[in-house]
C-alpha cells in the first residue's frame, strides 16, 4: 500500500507545447503518462507529428514508477520520442493519434521480450452508482498472464497489454494477483473511496511485482428517496384568483344596481 501511494506522490506535471490544431478546449483529451519500464530514467518528447523535436524534453529524467499529467491535449497526431536522459537517439519513436474529449493514460512498458513499448489505455470516466468505486488493473509488466481475485471470488485474468475493470462497492477491497499455478504475487487490501477510480499499472522489477497507481474521482448517480416541493408563495396558483372573484363581485353589483335603484324610486 505504501508503494501504491509513493507512485502517485511522484507525479510530475508536464507541459506539452500546443502545436497541434487549436481546437476548443472542451474537445481536448486529458493524458496521463506512466513510466512502467524498469531500470532506466528517460527523457520523453511529445510534439506535433511532422514538427521538429523540441530541444527541451517534455518530461526530463522521467523515472520508473513516475506518473505525469494530466495534460490537456487537442485531438491530433503527436510524435512521442523516448531517449536516455540528455541523449539524442530515440529508444522508441511512435506517433500517437489522440482522439477528442477523452481521458487517456499512455504507459511506457516492456514487451514480452523486454523491448520498450508504449500502450495507450482509455480511462472510463463515466459515473458510477453512489456508494461504488471503479477499480482497474492493467498488465504492463514483463510477466506472464496473471489472475485477479478478491477473497474467494475470481475477477478475471489479464495478459500483457490487457486491462481489467469493474465497479465494486466502495470500502476495503482485498485483492490478490497470482500466477496460473497459484503463486501469489500481490496480496493487498485497497481502500476504495466512494466514487473513486483506482487504476493500477503492473510493474515488475528485481523479481518483484508491484503496481503504479493513479487515483481519479468520478461522478456518481442515485435517485432521490423523497419528492421535492418547488414553490411556496402561491403566485402561480391555479385556484380561482382573487381578481377574478373581485370582478365577479363587481358584475354581481352591476346586475343588482338597477333593481336596487328601481326599489328606491
Amino acid at each position: 500500500m505504501k508503494k501504491l501511494l509513493a507512485g502517485l506522490a511522484a507525479a510530475a506535471l508536464a507541459v506539452i507545447p500546443m502545436t497541434a490544431a487549436s481546437a476548443d478546449e472542451h474537445e481536448n483529451t486529458d493524458v496521463y503518462v506512466v513510466h512502467a519500464f524498469p531500470g532506466a530514467d528517460v527523457d520523453v518528447y511529445v510534439y506535433g507529428d511532422g514538427d521538429d523535436r523540441p530541444d527541451e524534453a517534455t518530461l526530463a529524467n522521467f523515472s520508473p514508477e513516475d506518473v505525469a499529467g494530466p495534460v490537456s491535449l487537442p485531438a491530433g497526431s503527436y510524435a512521442v520520442d523516448i531517449t536516455l536522459p540528455g541523449e539524442d537517439d530515440a529508444l522508441l519513436s511512435e506517433v500517437l493519434d489522440v482522439p477528442a474529449s477523452a481521458n487517456v493514460t499512455v504507459v511506457a512498458h516492456p514487451t514480452g521480450d523486454g523491448e520498450l513499448a508504449v500502450t495507450p489505455f482509455v480511462n472510463d470516466m463515466s459515473a458510477v452508482e453512489c456508494g461504488e468505486a471503479r477499480i482497474e488493473v492493467r498488465h504492463t509488466a514483463q510477466a506472464p498472464e496473471v489472475f485477479l481475485s478478491t477473497g474467494d471470488t475470481e475477477l478475471g485474468s489479464i495478459s500483457l497489454g490487457e486491462t481489467f475493470a469493474a465497479d465494486v462497492a466502495a470500502g476495503d477491497l482485498p485483492v490478490t494477483v497470482a500466477l496460473e499455478d497459484g503463486t501469489e504475487l500481490i496480496d493487498t487490501t485497497l481502500e476504495l473511496g466512494d466514487s473513486s477510480y483506482t487504476i493500477l499499472h503492473a510493474f515488475f522489477e528485481d523479481g518483484e511485482l508491484s503496481v503504479i497507481p493513479i487515483g481519479l474521482e468520478l461522478d456518481c448517480t442515485e435517485a432521490p428517496d423523497e419528492e421535492h416541493s418547488p414553490g411556496e408563495a402561491g403566485l402561480a396558483s391555479t385556484a380561482l384568483p382573487v381578481w377574478v372573484i373581485a370582478l365577479m363581485a363587481i358584475g354581481a353589483l352591476s346586475l343588482a344596481a338597477p333593481a336596487v335603484a328601481r326599489k328606491r324610486n
Binding site: T119, V122, N123, G161, A166
Partner: peptide
C-alpha cells in the same frame, strides 16, 4: 454511448512495426 466497464479500455494494441 457511455459504457460501464472494461470493454472499451485499453485493448488498443500498438500498431507499431518493431
Amino acid at each position: 454511448d457511455e459504457t460501464d466497464g472494461s470493454d472499451v479500455d485499453g485493448d488498443d494494441e500498438p500498431q507499431q512495426d518493431p
